[in-house]
Design a protein around this nucleic acid. Structure first.
Lengths: 118, 118
DNA sequence: TCAATATATGAATATATGTTCATATATTCA
DNA sequence: TGAATATATGAACATATATTCATATATTGA
């Protein structure tokens, strides 16, 4: 197999390596999952997410809650939007953001479980 | 309340803001959870994690599986170790790494669900 | 003891990313 | 229409971080 020939490092247990390579999710999936978690991997965004776990909120209020600027929050909301983690609705000048689905809550809770256990 | 006075941004709905501020996890928890997800937010580490979901593996084999160098993998394993995501055991010259608990699998699965749903 | 091998680590470098600042856009209301 | 306000966005800057390279450490076996 080509992938095995591309392996420039001497493996200790070729059989195991071969088996793991076969069962691994494809690179695109791994990349996409990593990109998703990257979005969770920032304090400001995490705080935005925590806030939205409670309530639908506008940019201004999120800025207030996170002790940040509307501009910084707007930039971060774009990241969250691109990751399909938040949805929004416009009401006049005000844009309200909310979590897009329940995965967000579940992922946060799992993360919290881990850090609180350690 | 002091926190409210510190808010330099005009909020739209002060009551809502106040309520959310009260229910928010403390900053340390938010920071720690973000730091945890940061660890998941890199393709190489994600691939290491996926590999370890299948089998206990040594540095060399992980390098082979991820098409990376033992040095790069060793650096990343340190990050995973610090986040208490992996444990290891030494057998002669070889160090075997494995996932530390089942949170890792659960977190990965939640992430995968999200990206595959979109 | 010495060579070979597996892993770890520090420094350097290149790249990615979060915030700030200035500015643009959109909406409301006088 | 024009001012005020909420949000969005592009560029610049500072910081963080992943990989590479050189080297160190540890273990085995000759």
């Amino acid at each position: 197999m080509e992938e095995l020939l591309n392996c420039e490092v001497n493996s200790i247990d070729e059989k195991k390596v071969e088996k793991v390579k076969r069962t691994l999710p494809n690179d695109e999936t791994i990349f996409d999952v990593a990109e998703l978690f990257k979005v969770f991997g920032d304090s400001t965004r995490m705080k935005i997410i925590c806030a939205l776990l409670e309530e639908e909120l506008c940019v201004c209020d999120i800025a207030c809650i996170t002790n940040s600027t509307p501009s910084a929050i707007s930039h971060q909301l774009r990241v969250l939007k691109q990751a399909k983690l938040v949805k929004y609705r416009k009401e006049g000048k005000v844009v309200y953001y909310a979590l897009d689905d329940d995965h967000v809550r579940q992922i946060f809770e799992k993360g919290r479980e881990h850090v609180e256990e350690v």
